[in-house]
Amino acid sequence: MKDNQAAVADRWHTAVLDTYPPQTAKLWKQNTNRFTNPVGNSTLAALTALVGDLVVWDDADRICTHLEDVIKIRAVQDFTPGKAVSFVFLLKKVIREVFAQDISRHGLASEVAALETRIDNLALMAFDIYVGCRERIYLMRIEEFKNRYHMVFRKAGITCTDPGDILGPLGPDGESA
């Protein structure tokens, strides 16, 4: 697994892009300019990092950062919540495909089981992050509304200066404007 990280990441990337319409998937895989093709390239970078994280499995914060890079994008695309985080499970399939021979030849079932447990953990983290992203979207909607009528509220004397008073703190790093 350590030696094959790039191959795993690449297969995983392909599998994830295949959750988009085929004509889009191809384009996003081909264009390697990170500014004109942010989805394809952010996803690839984050998945590659995640494969590495999975092997090392030491820093939950870092793993969350990488997961968030992917989920953030999928959370605002036309996916149901399940489909948005399903990409994590695709990794199981990819690993079984890439290492099929090694697994059967060397009897690595227990290693695979351990790895898959990590992936299950990853999925749970992904779910938390997804919900966090959605919460942030809704808070942003409220914030935007308040910003728009900022002076009108002030004129009416109904300004609320700290949204935290009412709404609680914003998402992970979504500071109030």
């Binding site: 295949d18 959750t19 988009y20 319409p21 085929p22 036309d78 996916f79 399940g82 489909k83 399903s86 499970f89 695709l90 199981k92 399939k93 898959e116 992936i119 299950d120 999925a123």
Partner: peptide, 12 residues
């Protein structure tokens, strides 16, 4: 999870 993968329509 594996069955879940198969049951999910990956939005093609």
């Amino acid at each position: 999870p594996e069955e879940l993968i198969d049951s999910i329509d990956y939005h093609h």
